[in-house]
């Protein structure tokens, strides 16, 4: 069982990221994925996170307890959720938005900057999803691409796929640097 948390603030597409990953795993990779969203009573604009539990069998407990992957897209998200990351867990951050000081394995990507270069910072989460897919390998690249096709409006599919691949390539590069 793998537990993932995407965290940031409202408007960054945090919930959508969770849905795309969950859809990819459960519909296209045919495993089990339960996604839950968290937001405070003041729903919009504030802190926001989505949690996804992935498994080969039916998921009984729908929330994350000790995360394997934390994807943080704001400083607040990092400081709130860093502690629930397993010791052997992986921290993934937007290097421009988060100043991390963690002893856990950390990968960073300038996802928002890359999204801006692609023309719209709103797809930073998709760049991040590509990066996450490459680093974590918990979901197949093909499944993610199919999921993105189903999750975004038609005219934005190409842009989103480019964003995804840009993040994915960055992740591949980071991993090869590691080895």
């Amino acid at each position: 069982m793998i537990e993932v948390r995407f965290a940031g603030f409202g408007g960054q597409g945090i919930i959508r990221s969770g849905l795309i990953l969950g859809r990819a795993v459960s519909i296209f990779d045919e495993k089990f994925a339960t996604m839950n969203q968290n937001f405070g009573p003041e729903a919009r604009g504030g802190a926001c996170s989505s949690q996804i539990v992935l498994s080969d069998t039916k998921i009984l407990y729908p929330y994350v307890t000790r995360t394997d992957y934390l994807v943080a897209m704001s400083q607040d998200a990092y400081s709130t959720f860093e502690h629930e990351l397993k010791d052997e867990g992986t921290l993934i951050i937007d290097v421009d938005l988060v100043r991390a000081n963690s002893n856990k394995k950390t990968y960073d990507i300038p996802s928002t900057r890359m999204a801006e270069e692609l023309g719209n910072k709103i797809i930073a989460n998709v760049v991040m999803l590509g990066f996450f897919t490459a680093i974590s390998k918990v979901v197949s690249k093909e499944a993610m691409e199919k999921s993105i096709r189903e999750s975004v409006p038609g005219r934005f599919i190409d842009l989103n796929l480019r964003a995804f691949n840009k993040g994915y390539d960055w992740g591949d590069k980071k991993l090869s640097e590691d080895n």
Binding site: S26, F32, Q37
Partner: peptide
């Protein structure tokens, strides 16, 4: 709320 906001296949 848990079931309501929980996404699954």
């Amino acid at each position: 709320e848990c079931v309501g906001h929980m996404a699954e296949k």
